[in-house]
C-alpha cells in the first residue's frame, strides 16, 4: 500500500514508528477531547437551564 511494502512496514515506519504513532495518537486524543468538551458544555447548559426554568415556573 502506497509508500510501504506491507502493513507491518507501515506500522514500523522505518525505525520511527513509535514517534509517528505517538504523535498521531496524541493528536487524536486532543481532537476527541475538544469535540467532547463542546458536547459536554452544551449538555451542561441545557440541564442547568431546564432546572432553572422549572424552578421559575413553580415559583410563579
Amino acid at each position: 500500500m502506497g509508500h510501504f511494502a506491507s502493513f507491518s512496514d507501515f506500522l514500523q515506519m522505518g525505525k520511527h514508528g513509535l514517534y509517528v504513532w505517538l504523535s498521531y495518537g496524541i493528536g487524536l486524543i486532543v481532537i476527541i477531547y475538544n469535540i467532547w468538551s463542546v458536547y459536554w458544555d452544551r449538555r451542561q447548559f441545557f440541564r442547568q437551564a431546564k432546572r432553572r426554568l422549572k424552578r421559575e415556573k413553580r415559583s410563579v
Binding site: H3, F4, M13, K15, H16, G17, V20, S23, G27
Partner: peptide, 28 residues
C-alpha cells in the same frame, strides 16, 4: 490528508518516516 501523509507520501531523505509528524505539527 492523514492517510495520504501517513501511507502514501514518500519518506524524507534525511529524516525518514519521522517527517510524517509534519502533517499534525504544522497545521496545529
Amino acid at each position: 490528508g492523514s492517510v495520504w501523509g501517513l501511507a502514501f507520501a514518500p519518506a524524507d531523505y534525511q529524516q525518514g518516516n519521522s517527517f510524517r509528524i509534519i502533517y499534525i505539527h504544522v497545521p496545529t
